[in-house]
């Protein structure tokens, strides 16, 4: 018996590998989880798209649960996401702030004028510095930030219906209470 067991080792190793490969099929290798989740959101101030002389300051957001949605006019996936954001703004009380990433004000404004504004405010990050601090690597990305200013969740890529109803909405509700 012992003699036979030895020869089963390759098969067992192979089956373990298959288990991992199977699991791997349902993972997205492109999605890199953010190490910032569970950590304080990097503080920043940034000019507003509507009124560049005024500045948004993360410090003012203390005590509020809010979403930071990073987008740009040149980003195709953002345009796909736009209707979903509009819908979110309509059906929920979630405060969504937009960060216009590496964009020109005119082009960003044109997109908002054409497709509507789902944001409470839009901040501009023309040189992408804020984006780097938030670890943005592919727009659109959305951060859920709680009352203490801690990032609780990061959505990479467009917010899907599923992600919104199963993750973002329940999370925001829980954080608000």
């Amino acid at each position: 018996m012992k003699r036979t067991a030895k020869f089963l080792i390759p098969l067992v190793l192979f089956l373990i590998a298959v288990g991992f490969l199977f699991k791997g099929l349902f993972l997205d290798p492109h999605e890199v989880p953010s190490p910032l989740v569970g950590k304080p959101a990097p503080a920043f101030t940034a000019p507003l798209l509507s009124e560049p002389s005024k500045r948004f300051n993360t410090a003012d957001m203390k005590g509020k649960v809010w979403l930071l949605n990073v987008w740009a006019s040149w980003c195709v996936a953002c345009r796909e996401e736009h209707p979903a954001l509009m819908e979110m703004a309509k059906i929920s009380e979630i405060a969504t702030y937009g960060l216009d990433y590496k964009d020109t004000d005119a082009e960003a404004q044109a997109v908002i004028d054409a497709n509507g504004n789902p944001y409470k405010e839009i901040m501009t990050d023309a040189d992408g510095k804020i984006g780097i601090d938030y670890g943005v690597y592919g727009v659109p990305e959305t951060y859920v930030i709680d009352k203490l200013g801690i990032i609780r969740y990061k959505q990479i890529g467009p917010i899907t219906e599923q992600a919104f109803f199963s993750k973002i909405l329940p999370l925001v509700k829980a954080l608000q209470t």
């Binding site: 003699r3 020869f7 390759p10 192979f14 089956l15 298959v18 490969l21 199977f22």
Partner: peptide, 23 residues
């Protein structure tokens, strides 16, 4: 999924045969 299934049949089958005959 298809290729993985194929791997299981071909490699798994081969290694099973191996475990049976090798001793």
């Amino acid at each position: 999924v298809f290729i993985l299934l194929y791997l299981v049949v071909v490699i798994g089958g081969a290694l099973l045969l191996f475990a049976w005959r090798a001793p």
